[in-house]
């Protein structure tokens, strides 16, 4: 019986991240449009886009290899697995022991690798540009992410996300400058990884500076739907990650009881909504930076992560 409840709880998370991801994307778009005094698309538009794309035929380039056709499924599957394993509404779900923060970074790295290969597969110049830029950003974002993981591991004594959130929920933490630095660094990495505004512009595919959109330019139909869904899931994953580590309030832990889980679910949705609105406000208030300055931006994240680790190391050394 307990096993069935555990399985159901894990299944609920898998279903709910997939169901909510396009809504989150829609919310960010609506808030951005309203801030620009446009009416904007309805909040459910991403669902409609996905359904429409799923019904459409796939148009393949003549020289597309099998890699080009399999990559979208791989990207979607890997991102979905990663998103399902970040604690969202409850701690210690059935599969959460199998994956820690570093493994989630690795899963996302796998998805990125597949996407970059697919971007270069057809041989158009845009795909190549996008892939090379994506790799440049990744090569700076991943070390920063690992340093954040080290900070959290030093802090909580584990790299398991459930363990970190449980530590933050139950222990007396006090005032920790390292956590603040890690939080800022994680936000910067999340912005870069999701191609949000100062790094990349998700709203356009007609710019020479685009990164993500350049790689997926050749995709159509259900392949494009899968890639769009994966992008939404990735945004949801990063916001959940920030919420799980730095705002763990209200998450259900211990015994599976309906009321705490319901409360955890509501708290999680509220946190996602809040972070989504903040993201939209941030994106509206800042200009996109030149591609060559992304290095400085992520170098800042790397530095903050390293400084956080160092400071924590000092206070632990006492």
């Amino acid at each position: 019986m307990a096993l069935i409840v555990e399985l159901l709880a894990q299944g609920l998370q898998m279903a709910i991240v997939l169901a909510l991801a396009p809504l989150l994307t829609g919310l960010v778009r609506v808030v951005k449009a309203r801030l620009l005094r446009r009416r904007g698309p309805p909040i459910l538009q991403p669902y409609r886009d996905l359904l429409r794309l799923l019904r459409k035929d796939v148009l393949l380039a003549d020289n597309a290899s099998s890699l080009f056709r399999t990559a979208p499924y791989l990207i979607f599957a890997v991102t979905w697995v990663a998103a399902a394993l970040v604690p969202t509404y409850a701690l210690g779900l059935m599969f959460s022991w199998s994956v820690d923060l570093i493994a989630i970074v690795a899963l996302l790295g796998t998805a990125r690798f597949a996407l970059a290969l697919a971007g270069m597969d057809v041989g158009t110049s845009f795909g190549g540009i996008g892939a090379s830029r994506e790799m440049m950003i990744a090569s700076l974002a991943e070390p920063a992410m690992l340093l954040i993981a080290f900070t959290l591991a030093l802090f909580a004594g584990t790299t398991q996300l459930s363990g970190i959130a449980a530590y933050a929920l139950t222990e007396e933490i006090g005032l920790r400058v390292s956590l603040l630095l890690a939080a800022v660094a994680l936000v910067m990495v999340a912005i870069a990884e999701n191609g949000r505004i100062p790094v990349d512009n998700p709203a356009t595919h007609l710019e020479l500076t685009m990164v993500h959109e350049a790689m997926v330019l050749e995709y159509s139909g259900r392949h494009l739907a899968l890639i769009e869904a994966a992008a939404s899931l990735k945004l949801l994953l990063y916001l959940s990650l920030i919420a799980c580590v730095f705002l763990p309030f209200g998450m259900a832990f211990g015994e599976r009881a309906p009321l705490p889980m319901l409360l955890g679910l509501l708290a999680w949705i509220a946190k996602l909504g809040l972070l989504g609105v903040l993201l939209a406000v941030f994106e509206t208030s800042i200009a996109k930076m030149r591609v060559f300055r992304v290095g400085e931006f992520l170098g800042g994240a790397l530095m903050l992560g390293f400084l956080g680790t160092l400071l924590l190391f000092v206070s632990r050394g006492m």
């Binding site: 006090g174 005032l175 920790r176 400058v177 390292s178 903050l304 400084l307 400071l311 206070s315």
Partner: peptide, 18 residues
């Protein structure tokens, strides 16, 4: 808490130096 605040402020100075 006293130590944490001292840590925060001294760490803040290193951060501002950066």
């Amino acid at each position: 808490l006293a130590f944490d605040i001292a840590h925060l402020l001294a760490g803040g100075m290193v951060l501002v130096s950066f």
